[in-house]
Design a protein around this nucleic acid. Structure first.
Lengths: 227, 227
DNA sequence: CAGTGGTCTAGACCACAAG
DNA sequence: TTGTGGTCTAGACCACTGG
């Protein structure tokens, strides 16, 4: 009945109870293992999970301390739009608005690490929930990374879904910002100065940029998560 | 030289190379352990880390499969404002703008699970980077959860920093939205219709709400992270 | 029911960093 | 130098769940 999760819970309890206040060193793995009558590996696993969650700072030789600023990390789920919409009980649809080959704008090219005059595939689309505008998508795709996308059918499957299943990426980055609706206002039937939430995401396969996409959510949208 | 991280990397390589495409089952732990000449526990650790990162779906008896939608989770770091500002090489300062006991607004009370007429501590402050407005803070604190804060000196230490070191929380939630500057416009010397990024955060100790805070960032701010 | 992942153990060696 | 966490092993038993 004493698994590593139980041990992690007990350690967390002592932290919350301030038996082990922020900054304090806690006993060594071997000591705790003896106290609870388990193998050191079990304690190790529990403490590693708490360290990964930000509760503990661990360093060889220096020991384990309660983090001064606990919980600095939070997991934000960035769902596939279809899943996000359908999970809320609404129907999902996506409309391809445009599809063209064009030279990369300077800012996008810079983020993708490609020459500014490079020709790339430019896609714009609307994602709809229950038939109403949900999210606008503005995407640039490096045709050298995924040549097959040039001829793919994107009417039933969104570019995102196609890429996810055909072009796995090794890493990526994203940022979140607030922008005014501007030229997107007509899509959302809102004033041009409405504040909208945007998420830009770039994905890479090794050193090769795959795609750079900016999603703009309808007015009032919130990104939520637990700490 | 064959640690669990090497094994995780090799598995990831095979996923990226599409040796194991999305949805496909991969060999059992025991098989892989034999293939690489390591203990099953080592393979288990590698596969668990990949499953935690979203690359694999694992179920007892059903085996391990490559996730259909890899990398659905991203870690967003929510830093302490002081650390965020100082990390960018700027000087940090914070000005307490107001501090008063007042009845909780209905929406805040709802989020905190307290009666709407409950008296609580209301704080507003500006966080400055190199002397310029960086973030506006609007905070409500449950005085029953942290009575000591009522008499704390908040001129040198921000409420956030005080709470972090005096009132550990067990869990919390947050959401991110875009709003118009509105009445905060004078603080940022921007038009009232400027789009600003806001982060609302609620923290709890067990069943007791501690605080609910809304941070509004200066125009143009971006939240960034890696995937 | 039986196969697969989940976890524990006891012992060992290694890598890193504090003093 | 030496203490502390990081990891590996070989074997064992357990828990969940698919068939």
């Amino acid at each position: 009945m004493t698994g590593w999760q139980d041990i992690a819970a007990e350690v967390l309890r002592r932290i919350h109870a301030r038996d082990w206040p922020p900054g304090a060193a806690i006993p060594h793995e071997a000591t705790l293992a003896a106290e609870w009558g388990v193998a050191r590996a079990t304690v190790n696993r529990a403490l590693q999970s708490l360290a990964a969650a930000g509760w503990l700072d661990r360093r060889r030789k220096a020991g384990t301390r309660v983090a001064l600023f606990p919980v600095r990390k939070a997991t934000l789920t960035i769902p596939i739009l279809r899943a996000e919409v359908e999970a809320s009980g609404q129907s999902y649809r996506h409309d391809l608005l445009s599809r063209a080959l064009a030279p990369l704008p300077a800012d996008v090219a810079g983020r993708m690490g490609l020459p500014a005059d490079q020709t790339a595939l430019h896609l714009t689309a609307m994602h709809l929930a229950n038939g109403a505008a949900y999210t606008h998508e503005d995407r640039w795709v490096n045709p050298k990374a995924v040549p097959d996308l040039l001829t793919a059918d994107l009417t039933n499957q969104s570019a995102n879904e196609w890429l996810v299943s055909h072009a796995p990426f090794t890493h990526g980055d994203y940022d979140i910002a607030a922008t005014s609706a501007g030229t997107l206002a007509p899509h959302f039937a809102c004033p041009a100065d409405t504040a909208l939430l945007t998420i830009r995401r770039g994905t890479w396969n090794g050193l090769q940029a795959i795609t750079d996409v900016t999603l703009t959510y309808r007015p009032g949208h919130r990104l939520s998560a637990a700490l």
